[in-house]
């Protein structure tokens, strides 16, 4: 699972959960997959992401120093930051780990890079 996907997911599907974001991410095993840097894509992706979620992801991945506390206004001109965001959001691949619902503590496992967000019959 890429950390950009982490920014999209919530646990609001659970009965009684309103927001379910951000999930608590734990990484047991990760891989770094190098991929082509496409600044336009990152620029277009940023407005769809939640900045606090990006900060949390950076914290878990140990890249805290790379990501500023606030989204700078002129991010499009800041190629260095775009590259760092590209690395954080698209190159880090969580192979094993888990996502935890902030409201109920329900754990969603990530196995072999694929998060399993399925709920049981009694949770929907």
């Amino acid at each position: 699972m890429r950390l950009s996907t982490y920014n999209f997911l919530t646990s609001k599907a659970i009965k009684g959960v309103k927001v379910g974001f951000p999930l608590k991410l734990t990484i047991a095993k990760q891989d770094v997959v190098e991929s082509e840097f496409n600044p336009t894509f990152i620029e277009r992706l940023l407005p769809r992401l939640d900045w606090s979620g990006i900060r949390l992801a950076a914290e878990v991945a140990g890249l805290n120093d790379d990501i500023p506390a606030e989204l700078p206004a002129n991010v499009a001109e800041n190629e260095e930051l775009l590259k760092k965001l590209h690395h954080l959001l698209l190159e880090i691949d969580v192979l094993e780990g888990q996502l935890e619902c902030p409201e109920t503590g329900r754990v969603f496992p990530i196995t072999d890079g694929i998060p399993n967000m399925l709920l049981n019959e009694d949770e929907v």
Partner: peptide
């Protein structure tokens, strides 16, 4: 390079954050 992810989830009960 353009693969992001696949997720196991149930479409009848979406889990995507509001605003995605």
């Amino acid at each position: 390079d353009r693969y992001i992810d696949v997720i196991i989830s149930d479409f009848s009960n979406p889990l995507w954050r509001q605003g995605v």
